[in-house]
Amino acid sequence: MGSSARSLELRDASVRFGGIAALSEVSLTARPGRVLGVIGPNGAGKTTLFNVACGFVRPDAGSIHWGGQELRGLRPHQLARLGIARTLQGLGLFDRLTVLENVLVGADPQARTGFLAGLLALPRAGRDEARLRSRALETLDQLGIAGQADRHPGALPYAVRKKVALARALVAEPELVMLDEPASGLSDHELSELGTLLRDLASRMSVMLVEHHMDLVMSVCDDITVLDFGRVIASGTPDEVRDDPAVLAAYLGEAVT
């Protein structure tokens, strides 16, 4: 994480979809070396928040800042080069690519050779590819799924597919990783594994996660922002948020596990 590590900041971001205010003046900061959790009931605007931060949804008002610089007219394909990675709520794996190839796509922004080298299969394209390949295998190995490198995602259990998606995001060594519901569908054992991994990631980068699983959120997050109907109703440390009356009210009727 070095001293040059950057923070992602959202300032007063608002998004309307027709009649509904999906986000209203939401501000938050994801800091280096910290895990920021974004929680809230279904439809609270969590995914929309990620989409704003990634340039998929343009905010009607407000701004996004990365390392103090405003990101104007941000487009999703620019994120990877800014050092920001994200996983999707629906995984979004490339089904007809192998696991290794999926991760190689994540590593692609780091390639040094281009179209012509590929067209002519120049030796330097081969060396470049070998470099990315060993890096991708290393990332798969860190997540314990290097043995599945040549399989296709469709043939793998859900938990392994989630790891593939994570590997694809992490292989580029981002400064910030945004995870949309990384715990959904995981067993208790896999959950504790994920918790350890998230803490480990925080030592290298900023982590931002949307999650419904309260135990995980409370145990791994340094900061938590609670959304309800597109508004920030609370933010602070897990202890501060846990007992906040507004949060309890928002979750009333929902099982707080």
Partner: peptide, 30 residues
């Protein structure tokens, strides 16, 4: 030449876009 391209990262990016646009964009592909 086509086989070279298909095997290279150029071909891999084409296939990534085919399989999932949103994920491809997040991986830095225009």
């Amino acid at each position: 030449l086509l086989a070279n391209l298909a095997r290279s990262r150029v071909g891999r990016r084409w296939r990534a876009v085919r399989d999932d646009e949103v994920a491809a964009e997040l991986a830095g592909i225009h």
